[in-house]
Amino acid sequence: MVVHIQEEDEDELVIKFEYSSERVKKVKKIAGKRWCPEERVWIIPYTEEAINKFFNLFSNEEIVVDKSLNIGNASDNILQSRSVKNLIEEMKEEIQLQGYSPKTIDVYLGHIKRFIKFHKKHPKKLKQKDVRKYLLVLLEQQKTSHSYANQALSAIKFLYKEVLQKEEVTFNLTRPKKEEKLPVVLSEQEVIKILDSIDNYKHRAILFLTYSAGLRVSEVVNLKADDIDSDRMLVRVKQGKGRKDRYTLLSEKALKVLREYAKRYSLDEWLFPGGKKGKHLTERSVQRVFKKACRKANIRKNVSIHSLRHSFATHLLENGVDLRYIQELLGHKSSKTTEIYTHVSNKNIGNIRSPLDDLV
């Protein structure tokens, strides 16, 4: 699995990974490290010594470095070559010209950099067997999800077809079968407990709006004050996933919380401004707010801020809202994406009586 490193502040770095005793042993060897139980991450000093130690300890794992950090190890040399830098820039321009979102651009370029770093060769010199080998390493050795490997393949296909004009390298490559995972959904009572646990007016407004409108975290942080249409009781989502505009619900209760928040905070361009002037709140900050609220509400489920969106859709379905309307509110391109909520809803299954109850 992936090990993430990103900036906490000017003096410290955040290390995140899925738990394993071996990884914990490694990170404990870094001088000045500390465990942050609230966010369940490791913190290390932002020093050359600590960074080099980190890369040496985790040299056999996939390391994802936040784009804001200008750090790396010796194996990154291939990425610093002029030909590869030019290729990455050419791919970035091609993705932008095709109208992909900034998030997709970052994801695709990240996959290509890891692909190049793995083989330590310019992609022009690689063949289909090299792509297959990389995908097998992702799935079998690094134990990444099938969706992650599929995303990596999509980025590699884009590179060879649209940039290098060598489509034959990835032609007929088999995609990993899509995993049929069901979203984790909160009950209505659990949502109430989470929302009631928050005292901070700004944090309350964020989570109330996220749940009541079924927003993605990227959408809620990018909202502006004029996106709240209190006359029509709608929230306008501009350039959501897939670069689509849409409208979704504005709850009366959420509007009341928003007004309480607006009385106490000086709003500028953004509905939820961040710490830096002219910038909106970061997605990571919202995720931290949600995690803190879950701990305070004693929620034991393994949920994320996106679970509020899943819960919004499921609760609408359980309350009799037509799936087509839910699809529109969520901004799903395909109805098949929305249909997953029929598998987690208790609307029908909740009325079925277990045979055990008739036996005992």
Rank of each mutant, 00 (worst) to 15 (best):
V2G: 01
V2E: 14
V3Y: 10
S20L: 09
E22H: 07
K25N: 11
K29F: 00
I30P: 01
P37G: 02
P45G: 14
E49K: 15
A50T: 09
A50H: 09
N60E: 15
I78S: 08
I78D: 10
S81T: 15
L87P: 04
S101A: 14
Y108A: 04
K113P: 00
K117D: 06
K117P: 11
F118V: 01
P123W: 11
K125E: 08
Y134H: 09
L136V: 02
Q141F: 05
Q142A: 09
S154Q: 12
S154H: 07
I156N: 13
F158Y: 14
L159K: 09
K161D: 03
E168D: 13
T174K: 13
T174D: 10
K177S: 09
E179V: 03
E180D: 06
L182G: 08
E190A: 10
E190S: 05
K193N: 14
K193P: 01
Y201P: 00
H203C: 02
L209W: 04
L209R: 05
S212T: 13
R216Y: 13
S218Y: 10
E219V: 08
N222C: 03
D231A: 04
K241I: 14
R246F: 04
T248G: 09
K253Y: 10
A254H: 00
V257D: 05
L258H: 05
S266N: 15
S266A: 09
W270A: 10
G274D: 04
F290G: 02
K296A: 15
A297C: 11
N298F: 07
R309L: 08
T314H: 07
L316T: 06
G320W: 03
L323Q: 00
R324D: 11
K347Q: 11
K347T: 05
V360T: 00
